[in-house]
Each structure stands twice: as C-alpha cells, then as structure tokens.
Amino acid sequence: MISMKNVSKIYVPDKPPALSEVDCEIAQGEFVFIVGHSGSGKSTFIRLLLRELLPTSGQITVANQDVIHMKNAKIPFLRRNIGCVFQDFKLLPNKTSYENVAYALEVIGKSRHVIATQVPEVLRLVGLEEKTDSYPDELSGGEQQRVSIARAFVNRPPLLLADEPTGNLDPATSLGIMSLLNRINKTGTTVLVATHDREMVDSMRKRVIALENGKIIRDQSRGVYGYGD
C-alpha cells in the first residue's frame, strides 16, 4: 500500500532534516501507529504521503502510484483514495459540519441522494448528529476534529491517514475514536495514525513505527509507545 525508499525531507538548508533516509513498507489492511515527540517528523511523514509536500530525495509509492513524479492533474485522484484527518482539522469555514463532510462526496460526483443518506450516518458515528448545521467556528476543538474524521472516511477510502486524531479529545471520546478507527481498519482500510497518546498505543497493540529526529528508530509489530519518558 505504502512504500518509502530512502526518503529525506529538508525544509531549510543547513538545518537538520525533518526526515532523513526513511525506509518503510506498509501493507494493505495494516493498522500502524507513528509515534515520536513533537518535531520528530510525524506530520511530515503524513504530509508526504498525501503529496502535500514533496521529499527532498527518495521514492514514495502510495496505492501503486509514484507520488513524486505525478502530474498536477492526477493529484486529486490520488487524494480521493486517501482519507486524511488533519492536525489543524482543515475544515471549510463557510460550510456546516454536514456540508464539510458532504464536500468529500461531492468532489467524486456522488448524487445528492447518496450524500443525504451517507453523511448523517457518518456524523452519527462520530457523535455529531446534533451539530450537523453548525459552522466550524461554532464547534469546540474536539467537535471540529470529529468532523474532520467524518470527512476523511465518508467516501470509504482504502487508506486513512490521521495526524493526532485524538489530540483535542477527552479520554472517553478518544477511546470512541480509536475503536472507530479500529472498526474502519477491520473493513480492510489501511490506517496510519500519528500520535503521542501513550495509553492509546499501549492498549491497542498494533504495529508501531517510532521516529526520532527524522529517523526511524524502531519498527515493531504489536508494539508499545516506548520511550523512557
């Protein structure tokens, strides 16, 4: 599903790279945590897969497509196969929760009928059935995050990327979100979660890729959060 070969990303020349010589393979249907302190390169990892960024060097393949040499016009088609939960949510400010989620279906040309049945269902799944007509600035951080999650998987993408999906949520909701991600994974979706939520990682016992200063320092199946701190 995902293959990175010798990938480095340097934002500012002469500064330490955000990612340095990263190699990894993630198979279809896997559930993977990417852990590390802030600044360790987790977000860069996710943004490279979405082709929001280009690496400074190396090869990246997502869903059998060469992400680096992709034509600009092809990028939307790649992204339609990737649901992404953004750390800063990236909701459209002039659209309600419902419309934000519906947008992901509108871009792939789903009919209004399909949208009208799928969107409320997904919003109910993330516990936002009461807030369908609220605008992002009327929602709390946790609620915005759940809209972002709902938008990421409403079109059932084969790959789901999540950057700190439980960062703004209380423990109970976090648990709900994680079990939701688990269920999505059970239906065959590859799930990649960047997090520093120790309890979550330790309780789920999934594959863990640990990053430090842009390097993979540990990659173990059924791993734990690790780090002595």
Binding site: I75, P76, F77, R79, C84, K90, L92, Y103, V107, R151
Partner: peptide
C-alpha cells in the same frame, strides 16, 4: 486557505 483545503480533500481544479 479554503482553496488549499479543497485540493487536499481531492477536489479537481475545475471543480
């Protein structure tokens, strides 16, 4: 910023 978000959720340019 909205235009950037639209791109990231897979909207084509003409859309």
């Amino acid at each position: 910023r909205e235009i950037g978000i639209m791109r990231l959720v897979g909207a084509s340019n003409w859309f």
